[in-house]
Amino acid sequence: MTIEAELKARVREPERLVTRLAAWAGAPGRVEVYRDVYFDRPGGELSAGGAELRVRTVTGEAGARTVLTYKGAAVRRVLRRLDVADADLTVELYTDAVTRARSRI
């Protein structure tokens, strides 16, 4: 069984955060542009059931790729949203979350 887990944080200083994450990763990140097109039935049955159907095109240095994705209703979904003003704290939170997630696999 797959469990999807996300940790989202609103970032007030994106440039500083990108610099800190590049230092943490030991390399600069890659820039990708996502274009999503979502589909549902006329009565909204997919979204009402917790599902989604989308076509995602990702464009980056390596070119473009397009993926059709259907996500069924999550059996268990862990989602955390934070509003963090400090880029250093954001990096620490993500690092801690990744470490904890890996220890459970």
Rank of each mutant, 00 (worst) to 15 (best):
G50R: 07
R80E: 09
V58I: 14
D96E: 15
L53A: 02
G60S: 07
F39L: 12
R76E: 07
R104Q: 12
R20N: 06
A73I: 01
V11E: 03
A51K: 03
T2A: 08
G60C: 03
L89D: 06
S47A: 06
A73L: 12
G72C: 05
A87K: 01
I3S: 09
G63Q: 09
G49H: 06
P28G: 04
R12S: 04
L93M: 12
R65P: 05
D96A: 12
R41F: 08
T57S: 01
S47W: 08
L89G: 04
R77K: 10
E4M: 06
S103Q: 13
L7N: 04
A64W: 05
A85K: 15
V18T: 10
R35N: 04
K8P: 08
D96V: 05
R16M: 05
T66D: 04
L7K: 11
D40V: 00
G29W: 14
V58Y: 04
G50C: 03
T90N: 02
A9V: 09
E45Q: 11
V91K: 05
R76I: 00
D83H: 15
A73T: 06
E4A: 00
Y94S: 00
R30G: 06
G26V: 06
T99Q: 15
T2M: 14
V33D: 03
R80V: 14
A74G: 01
V37I: 09
T2P: 12
D96T: 11
L82N: 08
V67K: 15
Y70H: 10
R80H: 12
A5V: 15
A87T: 00
D40N: 04
D83Q: 15
T90H: 01
T57P: 01
L21H: 02
G44N: 11
V98N: 12
I3C: 08
V67T: 12
G29D: 11
L21M: 15
R56I: 02
R65H: 14
R76F: 08
Y34G: 00
V11D: 02
R102A: 07
E15W: 06
A27F: 15
V18I: 15
L68G: 02
T69C: 05
E92Q: 06
A9T: 08
R102P: 00
L89S: 03
T95Q: 15
W24S: 07
T66L: 05
P42Q: 02
V31K: 13
L68Q: 09
D88N: 13
T59N: 01
E52R: 13
